[in-house]
Amino acid sequence: MATTINEGTPVIPTGRSRRAKVADSGGRLAALLLSPTMLVLALVIGYPVLAGFRESLFTRGEGLDADGFVVEGERFVGLDNYAAIFSGDRATAFWNAFGNTTFFTVTTVFLETVIGVAMALIMQRAFRGRAFVRASILVPWAIPTAISGLLWRWIFQADGAANAVLGTDILWTADGPAAKTAVIIAEVWKTSPFIALLVLAGLQMIPREVYEAAQVDGAGALQRFWRITLPLVKPALLVAVLFRMLDVLRMFDLPAVLVGVNQKSVQTLTTISWFEASNLRYGSAAAYATVLFVYIAVISYLFVKLLGADIIGQAREVRKKPATKAGAKTVRKVAA
């Protein structure tokens, strides 16, 4: 023991400082090499976010002066725009849009996940005409949203296909719960293929032998799905669901084309923000956008934290290994 200490102590500090120096210069070089990317990101992401936030603290062109003229230029109003959103004259509209956005997110993502996984399982099967099935499943994803919105509006019009098939006289694209349903149906139709595609990629990473091993062990089809397929496809599925959630939270074009903006039942945070902006209430529009931004950020953070969606998993894995090694070394040193 004594000899270990005698030999060990003089070596450790030099070794450590040298390593620290290497890491330091490496870090500086890395920062230098990354700086162009950082600059571009700051310009295209950082600046708009900050500018949007700044805009939400101002109002312009809204007040009249004592002579009855429209006030030119912007006026700082602090958090007035936010106050108006949360509890002021726009609170009802905001909470309605917020509720709609959340409702659409929960329902469409749930339905898309179930349908998308089912589609992926079908596409993975080897059968005659598989290429055709795969292609036809992916078609809705390839159509521009505005076009599919028009398509569904045609289906959902008063004397359209939907009513003819169902034998009903529902005004799908007017307002109320029917309009919500129409938006959900169109959205699920359009974006299930996205989940299906990502899940299919995940499924194809699972070796066939793993299924066969479970089969030899006596696992039935359902057990294989719940115990083997789903856990193994989980990383891909979580990424797909996260992306879809972020998309639906920002949903604009489908309700706008299918039903129209400023329709209470399908008003989302994006359409309300757009509506404000097109009425030249930029401050209020920016406030809506900022609230949506924060909402999306919180949801994705919770999603990644709670469900462990491994968006940047491999990078973390690589970083973890040297860390544990260093940790083990410290332990050993302490023991010595």
């Binding site: 070796p207 032998e209 793993v210 066969e212 091993a213 479970a214 030899v216 062990d217 083997i228 193994l232």
Partner: peptide, 13 residues
């Protein structure tokens, strides 16, 4: 029967 596969087919999760 029990089978040992060439690539072992262990369940990675």
């Amino acid at each position: 029967v029990a089978m040992v596969f060439q690539d072992y087919a262990l369940f990675p999760h």
